[in-house]
Design a protein around this nucleic acid. Sequence first.
DNA 1: AGCGTGACGAGTA
DNA 2: ATACTCGCCACGC
Length: 121
Amino acid sequence: MSEENLPATALPEYAERVLEVAELIPPGRVMTYGDVAEWLEEGGPRQVGRVMALYGSAVPWWRVVRADGVLLPGHELEALGHYRTDGTPLKEASRATEGHLPRVDMKRARWDGGARGDGHI
DNA sequence: AGCGTGACGAGTA
DNA sequence: ATACTCGCCACGC
């Protein structure tokens, strides 16, 4: 038997953790890829991004955003619809956004993961 | 083995 | 505000 033939579970455990965090994010709030990685204490923003790109379709992917608050290319309208439904704070009422799609107001929408002071870690 | 790329982040000019 | 660089880790060629 060869160790090379890893079980390769349907979803890597890391991926499952990332998806779990994505599900934890309450409506009207968002977490950055880096925040998720930090919350998990493993991997980095790019690893989280990879998981979301592959399996994000099974979770509220729009609640995991870039640190800039820029909407996902190709899913801007989709995400925007969800943000309006969830009541996520957006930055649009400004001349700077004129001609540009609104971005998530990270200052208000960023979620710390429940402050994870209530029993976690 | 190296090299480019990616649903990233932060820093600097 | 934009553009560029570097660090980061996994994957594909």
